[in-house]
C-alpha cells in the first residue's frame, strides 16, 4: 500500500490554520467566561469581607431588627427587607398580567404588521428611559395625581411600586413576546385543527409552551425590581419603619444603601455592606428558584 498525498485523498483533511483558529477561539471564549465568573466572585468576596465586622457584631439579629441608628450603633434591616420584597411583589402583581397581555396583543395578528412593529418599538423604548426620569415623573406627576383620591400624603410604597411596575413592564412584555412568537406555529395549527378557539389555543397551548421563557422574563423583571435604586429612592419616602399600609413611606435595601453611603464610616459602612450582601442573597435565591421552576416546567 502506498501512502496517499493530501491532494489525492477523497476526504480532504482540515486545513491546519483553520484548526489553529478554532483553538484560539475556544481559548479566548473560555478566558472571557472565566473572567466573568471571577469578577462576580471577587465582588462578592470584597463585599463579604467588608461586612465581616457587622456580621460578627449583629449576627442574624441584623435581619430582624428595625432600628437603624448610626449614632447609637444600632443597625437592623428588617424594614428595608420588607420594603424591598413588598414593593417588588406589588410591582410584579401589576406588571405580569399587563406585560403578558401586551405581549399577546403584540404577537397575535390584531394589528397590521407595520403598526405592530411601531408598538413593539415603543414598548422597548420604555425600557430605555433612565430611571432618574421615572423618579422625576413620579415626584411631579404620579404622586400629586395619586394624592387626589388616596390617603397618600407624599412619597410612599404605592408610588414606588407603581413606578417599578412601569419600569419592569417592558422587560416582561418584550421577553414574553419573544417567547410566544418562538412557539412553533404548528402547535397553534394542531390546537386549532382539533377545534380549539383562538383563546383556547392561546391560553392552553401557546402560553404554556412559552411559559419557561415568560418565567425567565418575569424573573429578570423581579431582579430588576429588587435592585432598582434611583427611582425607588426618589419615591418611597425612605422611612425605616414597617407599615402595612401601602400609602405609608417605606424603604428598600438599595435605597438604604444610596442614602447612607455618602456619609457613612466605620461600623456603618460594614453594616451597609452586610445589607448589600443580603440583597445579593435575595436576588440569588430568586434566580435559583426561577431556574428550578423553569426546569420543572420544561419536564412536562
Amino acid at each position: 500500500m502506498t501512502s496517499l498525498s493530501d491532494s489525492s485523498k477523497i476526504i480532504k483533511p482540515r486545513p491546519v490554520n483553520e484548526r489553529y483558529l478554532d483553538n484560539v477561539f475556544k481559548w479566548t471564549a473560555q478566558i472571557f467566561a472565566l473572567t466573568i465568573a471571577l469578577v462576580l466572585i471577587w465582588i462578592t468576596v470584597q463585599v463579604a469581607i467588608a461586612a465581616v465586622p457587622a456580621i460578627k457584631q449583629f449576627g442574624l439579629n441584623f435581619l430582624f431588627q428595625s432600628s437603624w441608628n448610626p449614632v447609637k450603633s444600632e443597625y437592623g434591616v428588617w424594614p428595608a427587607i420588607y420594603g424591598t420584597i413588598v414593593s417588588s411583589f406589588i410591582a410584579l402583581l401589576i406588571a405580569v398580567p399587563i406585560g403578558i397581555g401586551v405581549a399577546l396583543f403584540l404577537s397575535e395578528d390584531y394589528l397590521p404588521p407595520s403598526i405592530q412593529r411601531i408598538f413593539v418599538f415603543l414598548v422597548e423604548l420604555l425600557a430605555a428611559i433612565p430611571s432618574v426620569v421615572y423618579g422625576l415623573w413620579g415626584i411631579f406627576v404620579l404622586i400629586p395625581f395619586l394624592k387626589n383620591f388616596t390617603p397618600l400624603k407624599g412619597p410612599g410604597m404605592l408610588p414606588a411600586a407603581l413606578i417599578l411596575a412601569l419600569m419592569v413592564l417592558p422587560v416582561i412584555a418584550a421577553i414574553s413576546r419573544d417567547a410566544i412568537t418562538n412557539v412553533p406555529e404548528s402547535l397553534r395549527q394542531a390546537a386549532v385543527g382539533l377545534g380549539a378557539t383562538r383563546w383556547e389555543a392561546i391560553l392552553q397551548i401557546m402560553l404554556p409552551a412559552a411559559s419557561s421563557g415568560i418565567i425567565g422574563g418575569v424573573m429578570l423583571a423581579l431582579g430588576r425590581a429588587l435592585g432598582e435604586t434611583m427611582a425607588v429612592t426618589m419615591l418611597i419616602g425612605n422611612s425605616n419603619k414597617v407599615s402595612l399600609s401601602i400609602f405609608a413611606p417605606s424603604n428598600t435595601i438599595s435605597s438604604l444603601l444610596t442614602n447612607q453611603f455618602a456619609e457613612a464610616s466605620g461600623m456603618q459602612v460594614s453594616a451597609l455592606m452586610y445589607a448589600a450582601l443580603i440583597l445579593f442573597a435575595i436576588t440569588l435565591v430568586v434566580n435559583i428558584l426561577a431556574q428550578v421552576l423553569v426546569k420543572r416546567l420544561q419536564k412536562i
Partner: peptide
Amino acid sequence: RRRIGMVFQRPNPFPKS
C-alpha cells in the same frame, strides 16, 4: 374543525404529557 379533524404532514404533539 370539530367535525373535520386533521393529522398533519409533520408530527406536532403538544409539549404536554
